[in-house]
Simulated assay, not measured.
Amino acid sequence: MALEAFHDIVTLELTNGEIRIEVTGLEAERIPKSPNRNTAGLVAKKLLEKRGIGVKIHLHKGIPLSMGLGSSGASAAACAYGLNELLKLGLSRNEIIKWAALGEIAAAGAVHADNVAASILGGFTIVRVHGDLIEAVRIEPPQSLEVALAMPIIKTAENKTAAARAILPRTIPLKNTVSNIQNAAYIVAGFHFGDINMIGRGMTDAIAEPFRKKLIPCYEAVKKAALDAGAAGVTISGAGPTVIAVI
Rank of each mutant, 00 (worst) to 15 (best):
D205R: 07
D228K: 05
M1E: 06
T171D: 00
G17Y: 10
T39F: 03
K155F: 03
I21Y: 03
G68L: 12
S144F: 00
A150P: 00
L48M: 11
I167D: 14
P217E: 14
A136M: 06
G131V: 01
L69W: 00
N36A: 15
M203D: 02
C79K: 07
V55W: 04
K175A: 02
I105H: 11
A221Q: 07
T39K: 07
A101C: 03
E27Y: 10
G73E: 15
A239Q: 03
L83N: 05
L83T: 06
L149E: 03
E49W: 03
K61E: 14
R212K: 03
I96W: 00
P142C: 14
T171H: 02
A117F: 01
K224E: 13
E209A: 10
L174M: 05
I120G: 01
I31H: 15
A245D: 10
V116I: 08
L91Q: 06
I21H: 06
K33T: 15
I196H: 14
I105P: 01
G131P: 01
I9C: 10
G190M: 01
E104D: 08
P241T: 05
E29C: 13
E104F: 01
S75E: 08
P64V: 14
A239N: 03
R51E: 14
H7N: 15
D205Y: 11
L121E: 07
D132Q: 06
K160C: 12
G41H: 13
I63V: 15
A100K: 01
E13M: 09
A5W: 08
A157D: 15
K214M: 12
Q182W: 10
